[in-house]
């Protein structure tokens, strides 16, 4: 279970998140929607541990442990995964080498043994088949020269391999055509499990047709202004975010 309590975050003089509260239970898919510049990506980066943000109050608890006190790699080993809005290109690091390094680094942190090469290959094959990732892509440098859709699929492949407890998908739908969107959504849906939860960040309702959320939260001006079921996404699609921004300002 992920619990964000009274989270206030600033960059320089500017306060981005203002006492944000959000709970996502095991097995739940929560959608986080909101207008541009409202702090959705900041929230995902702060949860994952990016430097440069000043957390002035609050905590982010994953199964009761405050992630904010841990290094990003420790958070990952504890089961947090962030699918990036813009996955980073890493020239010179073969994708396969990276995947193995990541998986084994997490296992080592958890005191587990390294995965044998055959077991690793089996896992890779299953995940890449599901996401339509060809084996020659795994030999290339990570994300270098990949299309937008390929980069997103690669992030979901990593999520499938690393089997996190909690996945944050930061605008995974941006830059995807309809076919790629479906593949990515299928990938996420395949990972839905009673002991795994997701926070799906998006502007649009479209992604939520494919990844159907259990709860929807509307964010405006740095905090959650309304929560509800999946029908809330449809309401936003019709009426836009203006009303919620007014609520936040009030």
């Amino acid at each position: 279970m992920l619990e964000i309590r009274n989270l206030t975050v600033s960059i320089g003089d500017k306060t981005i998140l203002q006492g944000l509260n959000l709970t996502v239970r095991d097995g739940e898919v929560a959608a986080l929607m909101g207008p541009n510049g409202t702090g959705k990506s900041t929230l995902s980066y702060v949860c994952a541990g990016k430097s440069g943000y000043n957390v002035t109050s609050g905590e982010v608890l994953l199964d009761g442990v405050n992630l904010l006190e841990l290094d990003p790699d420790v958070r990952a080993a504890r089961g947090l995964f962030l699918a990036f809005q813009y996955p980073t290109e890493i020239p010179g690091v073969a994708t396969m080498t990276f995947l193995k390094a990541a998986l084994n680094a997490q296992r080592k942190q958890r005191g587990e043994e390294e995965l044998s090469t055959p077991a690793f290959m089996k896992k890779i094959k299953a995940a890449s088949d599901m996401l339509g990732i060809k084996s020659d892509m795994l030999k290339r440098s990570l994300n270098v020269g990949f299309s937008g859709g390929e980069k997103k699929r690669m992030d979901i492949l990593q999520m499938a391999l690393l089997e996190p407890k909690f996945g944050i998908l930061d605008e995974t739908d941006s830059g995807l055509d309809i076919d790629a969107l479906r593949i990515v959504a299928d990938g996420v849906n395949a990972l839905r499990a009673p002991d795994r939860a997701f926070l799906v960040i998006t502007h649009y309702q479209r992604l939520l047709e494919y990844i159907v959320p259990d709860t929807v939260h509307i964010m405006a001006q740095g905090r959650i202004v309304r929560s509800g079921g999946k029908e809330l996404a449809l309401e936003v699609e019709k009426s836009g975010y203006k009303n919620y921004e007014a609520t936040a300002a009030a």
Partner: peptide
């Protein structure tokens, strides 16, 4: 790039 790798479980040194 370092942050991306850390979010996948690699330590800073790794």
């Amino acid at each position: 790039q370092i942050f991306y790798l850390q979010t996948r479980g690699l330590t800073f040194a790794q």
